[in-house]
Design a protein around this nucleic acid. Structure first.
Lengths: 260, 260
DNA sequence: TATGCCAGTTAACGGTGTTTACTAAAGCGT
DNA sequence: ACGCTTTAGTAAACACCGTTAACTGGCATA
């Protein structure tokens, strides 16, 4: 997934390397299943080894510890989420920016709902990882995930779909952070106005907030179903972006007269 | 904390009950310290018992397991957070609604920053708790915490500080959820317009989102300091509520000419 | 064919939650 | 003051966990 293409200097993988790669994949696969079935706390090297018919220390040939295994599968999950969003996006005509955006954002929530345990690991606190663990793989994959939305958002900016907020309210510190954010994430280029970056962050914060709240079940005791709230927030966000909101039912039904 | 007043039928606590209460407090205290020092995963009954000079099974006289201990201290933390916010709020003149709100919201973030591990347990995914654990104490305390903000928000609604959004965009499902939310949380009464409840939820989602993002460190690799982003979101939220935003410096300095 | 690398094992250390059966002390009613 | 009951706490055991160290057997290459 990460580097399928073989660059010069890399000869075709030997038998050894292939089987090695396969067992690593098996390890990650089982870990992933345990994560889904029992949550992050239920992922253990011993259990994985047991299921593979080998002993726990053997796994250390493939993984430097439980923490780094978690990081590895987290990276996979980010790529998977990005693929899911991209797939949903690809399902609507390329030029229909509005619907592409709505669809992509809903796909994000859908994936989260269908992968609660994964989402918690990806977007929740780094509960289990003590400092000193190398997060690079997960972070890189996270950036790839972010890029999924960037291209769509860049279109909105290019098309001037919404009015940029007053730049005078942006403090120098905020500008610095926003620039750093855009640069390190590969969003836009140096000509992209910081105001746009600010709007992007704000939208992301809201989306993140509403989905986290649902997945982490913080309103479960006061709300039965979080979907209406999500849709409401979505509508709110999109309206602010000059994007046409469409209720979920009407996007399933292909042709239909305007409601209301 | 929870029930200091003795109602009729409760006689004064016997010696036994007092010492029992004291050891329970000690247990929670140590658990809390371990939580702060080593994160949620670092809280263990055996370690607590060891530190208290007793054996682990003894703790089962006070707590029905590690999970419920976590729930107990979570409840305490919610009360503590509520108290911190209330204290900050009390530090500004009662009639200055605008500043009281800004101060309260900043106090929320401050507390989160100074209590990262606690925040993760309170507002993150229920990582460690397998289903079946009684969350009631934490949920109740969570509601008490919510109430801290409700009173302030109710003032805004009463004072008609902001225009209520168009109620026609509220679907029946959303209305039902919002009503349920307001009722179960004790926000307003049946005469409170659902539109107001919607605005409240939306604001809460945004605040929650931006603080979670900072505490869970999901932008750490692209941003050095999250404060500017928080302040930006805060300004955004408040402006939408018709509340005067004030930059953090100017609220420290008592008198100062308008900047710019 | 000999050598070295490498997957995987065994054994061990120290840690965890939880249950069961037990002891000793504290409290209470008479 | 005595006896009974409730309760705090212990010891032992079970079944897990991550991780390290020393070791073995086989494969691949020189």
């Amino acid at each position: 997934m990460t580097k399928p293409q073989l660059e010069q200097g890399e000869r075709a993988p030997s038998r050894r390397e292939r089987v090695r790669e396969a067992t690593l994949a098996e390890i990650k696969g089982i870990a992933r299943r345990h994560l889904v079935e029992q949550g992050a706390a239920g992922v253990s090297l011993r259990a994985i080894a047991r299921e593979m018919g080998m002993t726990a220390p053997g796994l250390y040939r493939y993984v430097s510890g439980i923490d780094s295994l978690l990081v590895l599968i987290t990276a996979d999950m980010f790529d998977e989420l990005a693929a899911a969003v991209a797939a949903a996006d690809a399902g609507v005509p390329a030029r229909d920016t509005d619907r592409r955006i709505v669809t992509s954002l809903r796909a994000f929530r859908r994936w989260a709902l269908e992968h609660r345990a994964e989402f918690a690991v990806m977007f929740g606190p780094r509960a289990r990882l003590e400092p000193g663990v190398d997060l690079t793989p997960a972070v890189e994959a996270g950036k790839r995930f972010g890029a999924t939305f960037f291209t769509l958002f860049e279109r909105l900016v290019r098309e001037k779909r919404f009015e940029l907020p007053d730049g005078r309210s942006i403090t120098p510190e905020l500008e610095r952070e926003l620039r750093s954010f855009a640069d390190l994430c590969g969003f836009g280029d140096s000509r992209t106005p910081v105001e746009a970056v600010m709007v992007l962050s704000s939208c992301w914060v809201r989306l993140y907030g509403v989905v986290c709240m649902e997945i982490f079940q913080h309103l479960d005791f006061v709300m039965q179903d979080m979907e209406p709230l999500f849709e409401s927030e979505l509508q709110n966000i999109l309206t602010g972006l000059g994007v046409q909101y469409e209720s979920p039912e009407s996007s399933n039904v292909v042709t239909m007269g305007k409601s209301d």
